[in-house]
Structures are given as structure tokens and as C-alpha cells.
Write a protein that binds this DNA or RNA. Structure first.
Lengths: 166, 166
DNA sequence: CAAAGGTCATTCAATCTTCAACTATTTTCG
DNA sequence: CGAAAATAGTTGAAGATTGAATGACCTTTG
């Protein structure tokens, strides 16, 4: 690749990008503060509780949980330790694969989630969903679906990804 | 407020919300890794450099910088210290308000920004802007503009915000 | 089968973020 | 004026995140 003039963003794209990143910067802290204040949960705690609650037996393999919540295994591991200490989840060894483990939602975790959900949903409405028109939500959903799919790690680099030909 | 049935999100809203949060979870780390790898900058470093570069004399009051980059003063203060140590920025006392200070872009900071910008813009294109159609970008821009405006701290709670009447 | 290589999860250390003080200054207003 | 309140910014300690390294266990494959 020779050094060519970089392709800057158009003014319009620039504005769109800045708005997106402003939301990215502000929304999670806002949602988190409200969750924290009302139920002592972080946003990550909440996301994990939700995932667990939606799976059979309320348990998920840690790897799957990491992928579902878009975080590294390392981070999830720390997170689990904290949530375990808080009594929200437990670890269970996987019987068929002795490397693996499940995260399990505890009764306590279930109750906390049940209590926190309405408040959290209300926050999400107030700060995000109710601010957009139905038409906007529709389009944003499509656009972000595509973006998310592209960001998500390929589900199997298939061994040798044959060197690309020019 | 009596305990009434919570207003859950519709299935469709739920899907939109999950896509948004997936992007929020994945995009910044992705952009950051590429910035970090190619130029040793964090995303926050970059945002700060951009802000400074766009202001007269390449300097901005710390408060304004904190607001422009949507972060707390405390965090900015730590960030400034790190960036100062890295030689990217400097602090300058404000002559008219002795509490205040400016962040100033150094020559080095300017050079690093100039070098990093093309790569970073390319990342933003690849992972975000080029994934959306022009029509989608248009709508997303409008929607996120509204969301961001609502999230941004009111620019003056005007003393006593007269108690709301039922 | 056994070595080589991949995957699952945890750990460590370095960084970064948060939140609650705290200092110093400016502004408000009785 | 001068006390009280607000604002600018910093600090410190506790907690969270990162990325590389590690250990343990599966899966290939020659």
C-alpha cells in the first residue's frame, strides 16, 4: 500500500460519527448509575444476569457467556468472581469437558434481576428507546445489526484462510 | 408511584436495543486496539488530541474539554497527567481565573495526531461508516443526535427548577 | 498412539476508572 | 462587605479492565 491521500470522512459522516461516539460515551455510565443506585448492580452484572436467565436451567458455559456479552474471558472471569462473592451466580464444573465451567444463576441472582429489570427497562426507555421514533428505531436496528455482525469475531477462521490473491 | 406492571420493551425494541448495546460493547475496544497497535494511543487520548487540535491556539479549558469528550473531570485529570508524561499535551494556568487551567496540544501531540488520524479514520470507516448505507447514516445521525442531546447534562438547572405540579 | 496444536478458563501485573474528599478560587446575595 | 455556596481542578484509594502468560484438558493427525 503506497502512501496515498487518506480518505477523510465527509462533514456529514463526521457529524454522524461524533454523535454515535457521544452516545457511546454517555449512555452506559448513565444506565449504570441508575442501576447501581437502585439495585447495586453494574451494567455488566445486569447483562450477565439476563443471559443466564434466558438459558435452560439458567446456566451457560463461560465461553458462550463471554461471547454473548461481548467481553473477554479474562474480564468475565473476574466479573464472575465478584458476582459469585455477591451471591448472584455460582460456578459449576462441566461434567463432559473438564476444562470448562458453567455460570449458574442463583435464586438470589434471579430475585435481584427480577427486581432490577423494571427500573432498568425504564432507564433504557427514557434515555434511548423513547427518544427515537418508531421509524428511526427500525432503521437504527438494521444499521446496527449490520455493524454488530461485522464486529463480531468470525465464527471459525477455518484453519488456513487461504492467502488472498490480488 | 404505585407498583404497576412494568412496561417491557416490545420484541422489536428489544432486538434493537441489544444490537445497539452489542455495538457499544464491541466498537470501542476494536477501534482502540487498532489505534493502540499502530500509534500507541488509547481512544480517549485520540479524542482529546482531536478536540485540542480543533481549537484556537490548540488549547482548551479543562472543564470544556471534559464536557466535549463526555468524561468526568477526575478522569480527565488523570488522563492529562498520563498524556503530559507522554509529551502529548501540556497544562497552562488560566490567567483570568486562577482556579482554572488549559490543556495545550504540544508539537509532539500534533505530530502524533497527524500520524494516527488516517489509520483511525480508516478503522472508523471499516467498522462503522462504510457498513451503513447513506440513508441509514442519515437516520442514525438524527436519532443519535436526539439521544445525545437528551443525555447531555442540562446546561444550567437554573437555580430552583420549580417543583412540578401534578 | 503420541506429539502438536487448539480450547477453556484463570491468574498476574500494569493501567485505567470511579467516587469521594479536598484545596483554592470565584460568585452570589442578605 | 462578608459568609455561604458554587466552580475548577486535583488527589488517593478502591475497584475494574487489559493483555500476556499459564495450566489443564481436548482433538488432530502423522
Amino acid at each position: 500500500m503506497t502512501e496515498s491521500e487518506p480518505r477523510w470522512l465527509s462533514d456529514e459522516d463526521q457529524r454522524v460519527w461524533r454523535r454515535i461516539i457521544a452516545v457511546i460515551n454517555m449512555l452506559p455510565p448513565r444506565l449504570e448509575r441508575e442501576l447501581q443506585r437502585t439495585h447495586g448492580l453494574s451494567l455488566h452484572d445486569y447483562q450477565i444476569l439476563v443471559q443466564l436467565s434466558e438459558h435452560p436451567d439458567r446456566e451457560v458455559r463461560l465461553s458462550d457467556l463471554a461471547e454473548a456479552t461481548q467481553q473477554s474471558k479474562s474480564r468475565l472471569s473476574h466479573q464472575m468472581t465478584r458476582m459469585e462473592n455477591a451471591g448472584l451466580v455460582a460456578r459449576r464444573n462441566c461434567p463432559t469437558d473438564r476444562r470448562g465451567a458453567f455460570a449458574v444463576l442463583t435464586e438470589e441472582g434471579w430475585r435481584v434481576l427480577e427486581a432490577a429489570a423494571p427500573t432498568h427497562v425504564e432507564s433504557v426507555r427514557e434515555h434511548l428507546m423513547d427518544v427515537m421514533t418508531p421509524a428511526q428505531k427500525q432503521i437504527v436496528g438494521e444499521a446496527f445489526g449490520a455493524v454488530a455482525d461485522k464486529l463480531r469475531p468470525a465464527t471459525r477462521p477455518t484453519a488456513c484462510p487461504s492467502l488472498k490473491q490480488p
